[in-house]
């Protein structure tokens, strides 16, 4: 699922433009595996699956793999539609330097939710 992010994001010119000031790496953690997502001025430059030797990233979004699957359903069930709903009810945690995430929250939410555009709901 996350490997599709370059196609989902980079083809959306408005989304890329809105992220023009974002250059960093963040981690999507699913417990026993993770992905590093490298952002370069609003474009997804790379998505690197674990293991990554000595990974560096600005912040991490952590939740169980099956919960990400529920989040990426095309029509999520109540409580599964938003990362903060999952933070309140389903154990999602936000870790690290969060200022870039919060300062660009619409953008990161749009990126994280973009896999819903794909027809299948299975995690990663």
């Amino acid at each position: 699922m996350l490997e599709k992010l370059p196609d989902l994001v980079n083809g959306d010119t408005r989304l890329v433009a809105r992220g023009a000031h974002i250059t960093l790496s963040f981690k999507v953690d699913m417990g026993d595996r993770y992905w590093l997502v490298d952002i370069d001025r609003g474009r997804v430059a790379a998505v690197r699956p674990s293991p990554v030797m000595m990974p560096q990233y600005t912040f991490a979004i952590c939740c169980a793999a099956e919960h990400w699957g529920a989040f990426w359903e095309p029509h999520p069930k109540p409580g599964w539609q938003d990362i903060f709903g999952m933070q309140r009810h389903h154990g999602l945690t936000l870790e690290g330097e969060l200022q870039p995430l919060i300062a660009n929250l619409f953008w990161f939410k749009d990126v994280l939710e973009s896999p819903r555009k794909l027809s299948q709901g299975a995690a990663a």
Binding site: Q81, F84, G85, I102, A103, L105, K109
Partner: peptide, 30 residues
């Protein structure tokens, strides 16, 4: 509290766009 509300009023964050982004997940998908 289920998030740190101090993020809503900091000089290094646009508080009102962030407020909107924060509550944007409270809508029904349709």
């Amino acid at each position: 509290p289920y998030y740190d509300i101090s993020w809503l009023n900091r000089p290094d964050v646009n508080g009102w766009e962030t407020a909107a982004a924060w509550i944007s997940g409270l809508f029904a998908p349709d």
